Simulated scan of single mutants.
Amino acid sequence: MTPVPSQPERPRIRVAVVIERVREPNRWQDWAFSIVDVVPDEPAFGAEPRVLRDDGRRCRTLYPGFELELFRDQAEGYHLNLSSGAPVWFVVWRIDDEDPSLAWPETVSLSYDEAGRWLDAQERVDNVPLTPDVAAWLQAYTDANYRPEPKQRRRPQSFVAPDRRG
């Protein structure tokens, strides 16, 4: 039996997400939520969400403990994010069905394709700008792993036999 070479560990970083909740942002809503920032996770943050600021109207909460791994099969999505001109974090978040004053982040990604699938599935997805150091880290990974599909020229349909037209 031939040993299978071990797969090199995937690049990963740990991050925390900051969500802001606003009470009665207008006369039609009781609560509004937004993703404010994605920051490097620090051991001092602990494992549980913690309120950073709450003045009764605006509340910012830090949610630590998200691990973001890069995958080769998402390299095209990373490339699309980076080539957009303004690369971002994509954050999926949810609101509690029973208590609409509570919301939390579910997952974090850097892949434009993955964010598109979440949006197609009717998920709540917000984005916040990447810092230059994370963008450079993602760019290095994408440069090493993304190979665009070669473009194939399609023959005009008028040159294809009628029984082979699609």
Score class of each variant (00 low, 15 high):
Arg10Gln: 12
Pro105Ser: 10
Gln152Val: 15
Glu149Ala: 14
Pro11Phe: 01
Ser83Pro: 03
Leu52Met: 14
Val36Pro: 01
Phe66Arg: 09
Gln74Arg: 10
Glu42Asp: 14
Ser158Asp: 10
Leu119Ala: 11
Gly46Trp: 07
Thr131Ala: 12
Pro148His: 05
Leu82Ala: 03
Ser34Ile: 09
Ala32Glu: 12
Phe33Asn: 01
Val38Gly: 02
Gly56Lys: 11
Asp143Cys: 05
Glu67His: 04
Glu48Cys: 11
Val38Cys: 08
Pro129Phe: 03
Leu52Asn: 00
Pro100His: 09
Glu149Pro: 02
Phe71Lys: 08
Leu119Val: 14
Pro100Met: 06
Arg12Tyr: 08
Gly65Met: 07
Arg60Tyr: 12
Pro129Glu: 15
Ser158Gly: 00
Ala16Asp: 01
Gln74Gly: 00
Arg165Phe: 07
Ser111His: 04
Leu68Arg: 02
Asp73Glu: 15
Trp89Glu: 06
Ile19Cys: 02
Gln74Lys: 10
Trp104Lys: 01
Ala115Ser: 15
Asp133Ile: 07
Ser6Thr: 12
Ala115Val: 05
Tyr63Gly: 00
Gly85Ser: 05
Gly77Asn: 04
Ala16Gln: 04
Tyr78Trp: 08
Ser158Cys: 08
Tyr63Asp: 05
Ala16Gly: 08
Gly116Thr: 12
Arg153Pro: 00
Ser101Leu: 07
Arg58Leu: 12
Val160Phe: 14
Ala121Ser: 15
Trp118Tyr: 07
Arg117Ile: 12
Thr107Phe: 05
Glu114His: 08
Ala86Met: 10
Ala140Ser: 15
Ala44Glu: 13
Asn145Pro: 05
Ile35Thr: 06
Tyr63Arg: 04
Leu130Phe: 00
Glu98Asp: 15
Phe90Ile: 00
Val92Glu: 15
Leu80Asn: 02
Pro3Tyr: 07
Thr142Gln: 06
Leu102Glu: 04
Arg60Phe: 11
Glu20Val: 09
Pro105His: 09
Trp104Asp: 01
Val108Leu: 00
Asp99Leu: 10
Met1Asp: 09
Val92Trp: 05
Pro162Tyr: 11
Asp163Pro: 01
Gly166Trp: 07
Tyr146Lys: 03
Thr107Val: 11
Glu114Tyr: 09
Arg12Met: 11
Asp113Glu: 14
Gly85Asp: 11
Ile13Arg: 10
Val18Trp: 00
Glu67Pro: 03
Thr61Glu: 13
Asp41His: 06
Leu68Lys: 04
Trp104Ile: 01
Leu52Val: 07
Pro150Arg: 06
Trp137Tyr: 14
Glu106Met: 07
Arg27Met: 15
Asp163Arg: 03
Ala103Leu: 08
Pro150Ile: 05
Val17Lys: 00
Glu98Gln: 11
Phe45Asp: 08
Asp37Leu: 03
His79Trp: 13
Ile13Gly: 03
Phe45Ala: 05
Gln139Trp: 02
Arg147Trp: 08
Arg94Cys: 12
Arg60Val: 06
Arg23Gln: 12
Leu82Pro: 04
Arg147Ala: 09
Cys59Ser: 12
Asp126Gly: 02
Glu114Cys: 05
Asp133Phe: 08
Arg154Glu: 14
Pro132His: 06
Val128Asn: 09
Trp89Asn: 06
Phe71His: 11
Trp118Gln: 03
Asp113Thr: 11
Asp126Lys: 03
Ala135Ile: 00
